[in-house]
Amino acid sequence: MSRSRTEIVRGLFGDWGFVRNWGRIGSSSQQRTDWFETETAAKDASFDLHMQKAKRGYE
């Protein structure tokens, strides 16, 4: 079984981050942050990832 989590965060310099955490339950997880100039761009990236996963059957 695996888990994943996403969130949008504000950076120190006015930028926005789309943070993803994933991994197997009971082991250390991996994390990736993609930085964007606007909150809208970060939210669009989150939505795009969600749609890609939905097309592959993930919930």
Rank of each mutant, 00 (worst) to 15 (best):
G57W: 13
S29N: 11
T6N: 07
T40M: 08
S27F: 12
D44H: 09
E39M: 11
R3L: 12
A41Y: 01
G17F: 01
S46A: 11
E59M: 15
S28W: 05
E7S: 03
R24F: 09
D15Q: 13
A45D: 02
S4R: 15
D48I: 04
K43R: 15
F18G: 02
E59Q: 14
M1N: 15
L49A: 14
G17H: 03
F18A: 05
S4K: 03
Q52R: 15
W16Q: 05
G23H: 00
T33E: 03
A41E: 07
K53R: 15
H50S: 09
R56E: 13
I25L: 12
D48F: 07
A45W: 02
T6M: 10
W35E: 02
K43I: 01
G14V: 05
K43T: 00
E7L: 10
Q31M: 06
M1H: 11
G26Y: 05
D34N: 04
E37V: 11
E37M: 05
I25G: 01
T38D: 04
R3A: 15
V19A: 00
T6I: 08
N21T: 10
K53G: 06
W35Y: 06
S27H: 09
D44F: 13
R5P: 00
R32S: 06
Y58F: 15
M1I: 11
G23V: 14
D15E: 12
F18L: 03
S2P: 14
F36M: 04
E59W: 09
A42W: 00
S4Q: 15
G23F: 08
F18Q: 00
R10V: 09
E37F: 02
D34F: 00
A45L: 02
M51A: 12
G11R: 10
W16V: 00
I25T: 02
K55S: 10
A41V: 01
G17P: 03
M51G: 04
T40Q: 08
W16E: 05
G14Y: 07
W16K: 02
E7K: 06
D34M: 05
M1Q: 09
M51C: 13
D44T: 10
